[in-house]
């Protein structure tokens, strides 16, 4: 009997692995399940309110700040060249902290250490605006590839928490975003959960927000413990989601319902 079990396991396992996460060719950005009106809103740079944050970020880019009285542009020059592709690489492995670092955290470190600016809160307007501006320089590029072996253990940790049932509803992220994308949770279409457009302009928020805020909102909805903004476990989860969405097109600033 044992060879039969072995054969059954060999047949079942690859299928189970495929069913676990959307196959690379089948992945769909939340953009594709939005209404035509919302897609038009994102596509038109005059109708997309996220562009207000991009414009604010552009102004901050060339504004001198902090004790060093230096602007981002003084070191990095034209963001269209120097920042192109940067958002595609984040979260990236940061050798100094030996942990992954998200784009907004990387920008914040540069602001505090190189410019001598006062630290900013994670969801502050200026941090979101600069992050949106920098990420916007990568619009249309492919996310990833996130093949740094040092990032691997954190992606694995993020994957584990993605599949971990938690909270009073005993749900994992995968329960909705891997198993039931396209179906509805209350009135909303469940997306596959690809972080391709952050920071996003979310209609429910009436403002731009980070992936961190989105993840904390989801965890609160699951009635799970919500980590503090910028907590390492959120960055690990973000690293896994980015790895899972590798190759997909960056949309920043995306619009979502």
């Amino acid at each position: 009997m044992s060879w039969r079990h072995g054969l059954a396991a060999a047949l079942v396992l690859p299928i189970a692995a495929l069913a676990d996460a959307p196959a690379p060719g089948d992945r769909r950005s939340g953009y594709e399940t939005m209404s035509p009106a919302l897609r038009a809103m994102q596509d038109d740079d005059v109708a997309n309110p996220g562009m207000l944050w991009v414009l604010d970020g552009e102004a901050l880019w060339s504004t001198r700040a902090g004790a060093a009285d230096r602007a981002c542009a003084d070191c990095h020059g034209d963001a269209a060249e120097s920042m192109r592709g940067v958002a595609a690489r984040h979260p990236t492995f940061d050798p100094r902290s030996a942990a992954p670092i998200a784009l907004d955290q990387r920008i914040e470190r540069c602001r505090v250490e190189q410019q001598g600016a006062a630290p900013s809160a994670p969801e502050s307007h200026d941090r979101l605006a600069l992050t949106a501006f920098v990420a916007h320089q990568s619009r249309g590029l492919a996310l990833g590839p996130f093949d740094d072996p040092r990032l691997r253990p954190f992606v694995d940790a993020g994957r584990a928490s993605f599949h971990q049932r938690q909270g009073q509803l005993d749900l994992s992220c995968a329960d909705c975003h891997d198993r039931h994308p396209g179906r509805r949770l209350a009135g909303n279409v469940i997306p596959e959960g690809h972080p391709t457009g952050y920071p996003i302009y979310r209609l429910e928020w009436q403002t731009v927000g980070s992936l961190d805020r989105r993840l904390r909102g989801c965890l609160a909805g699951m009635r799970a413990t919500v980590p503090a903004p910028g907590a390492p476990e959120l960055t690990e989860l973000a690293a896994y989601l980015a790895w899972r969405a590798r190759g997909m097109t960056i949309e920043t600033p995306a619009v979502r319902p």
Binding site: D45, V46, A47, M51, L52, L55, D56, H125
Partner: peptide
């Protein structure tokens, strides 16, 4: 934060 506009004519 200053007021910003997006205008298309």
């Amino acid at each position: 934060m200053r007021t910003r506009t997006l205008v298309k004519v």
